[in-house]
Design a protein around this nucleic acid. Structure first.
Lengths: 189, 189
DNA sequence: TCCAAAAGCTATTGCCAATAGCTTTAAAGC
DNA sequence: GCTTTAAAGCTATTGGCAATAGCTTTTGGA
């Protein structure tokens, strides 16, 4: 009965949606199969393993996030571009928490990472690098600044997602000020 | 045969060591029990559940990290204190990756968090708050600056632990510059 | 010395990932 | 239009794990 019409992409899409709903760690193959209307073992006609599916989700999510940031920074430069990239990343991460988590867990280059995954991660970092290029940074300075921005953005988003910030004060404002503060520091790199 | 001499603290210690060795997510009750020389079901005489054990590890790790940061900042103030706190946190996180991960996953105040866990998390944040107090910050400014420092530190440490930084450039230097950059931005808060 | 609570055990259940091997569908070739 | 075959589904099974039930043994205090 080969008629459920399941494809690798549909499996990945369902896994992504589920990850956003219940958390990346709580995605089970049984639940993904159930959503697709097939039984768990049938999934193995489309994936290698749970780990492989997670890696696929990570790569797709990384490409999606990169695309979102590219659009957000199009036609902008300097502080405007950095600010737009920062807010685009946070907005997307809040809308897609499971996908976002997959982008961080993904680039395990140490283990046997697929070329596509590595490329996707490099493209994402490359975009940040390019956006910072307008500040006249070169060599190690640019590397340090890129790492700094990635740290600032991931740290804030991850703590926010983990419920690490108490209710009271305005979290949006805290983010705005952190990003603005980072941008002001760029000429010093 | 009540003679293995297992206590709640010993269970937590073994879970912590295992978390540092294989990762927090890969800690199984079977492995913890094996290390203690007892069978898995016997563990339930000392813990409530796997989730409860993870919460206990998180609380203990938060207290340990706070203590490390307190010692590192003792007798220091201003930029020196912030820098010492930052480096103490990163050093401890690199030495104890599983424990560190537990400190972030822990403070799920939204769900039913134990009072002890909430207190431990508040103490840790309180220390950062106090260290930043020397910069003349008050009210929301202090909250924003505290969130900013937490984001910077967690982001860098988490990306580093995930293998997010490619091999080449000196990671220590990137961290030093990010922390210095943050400290320079403090008067502007 | 006794006895009751603490701490261990075996057995069992249910969920999950993964594999083996069978069946059915559907498309491609004739 | 018929046949063949690969793809895509299925059931059955295994092994690991968390969790619970219920029994046994130890051991410290009355």
């Amino acid at each position: 009965m080969a008629r459920a019409g399941v494809t690798k992409d549909r499996v990945a899409e369902e896994a992504e949606q589920l990850a956003d709903e219940v958390g990346l760690e709580s995605v089970t193959l049984a639940a993904v199969a159930g959503r697709l209307g097939i039984k768990l073992p049938s999934l193995y006609k489309h994936i290698d393993s749970l780990g492989g599916l997670r890696a696929t989700v990570g790569e797709r999510a990384t490409r999606e996030l990169t695309e979102v940031m590219v659009r957000a920074t199009a036609g902008k430069a300097g502080p405007d571009a950095v600010s737009a990239l920062a807010h685009a990343l946070r907005d997307w991460a809040r809308a897609h928490p499971g996908r976002y988590a997959a982008t961080i867990a993904a680039p395990r280059v140490s283990a046997g990472a697929e070329p596509g995954q590595v490329q996707a991660a490099e493209d994402a970092v490359g975009l940040i690098f390019d956006v910072l290029a307008g500040f006249g940074l070169g060599g190690d300075d640019a590397v340090d600044a890129t790492r700094g921005l990635r740290a600032v953005l991931h740290g804030f988003v991850a703590l926010e997602a983990a419920g690490g910030f108490g209710m009271p004060a305005d979290v949006d404002r805290s983010f705005d000020r952190l990003v603005a503060s980072y941008i002001r520091s760029l000429p010093a790199y």
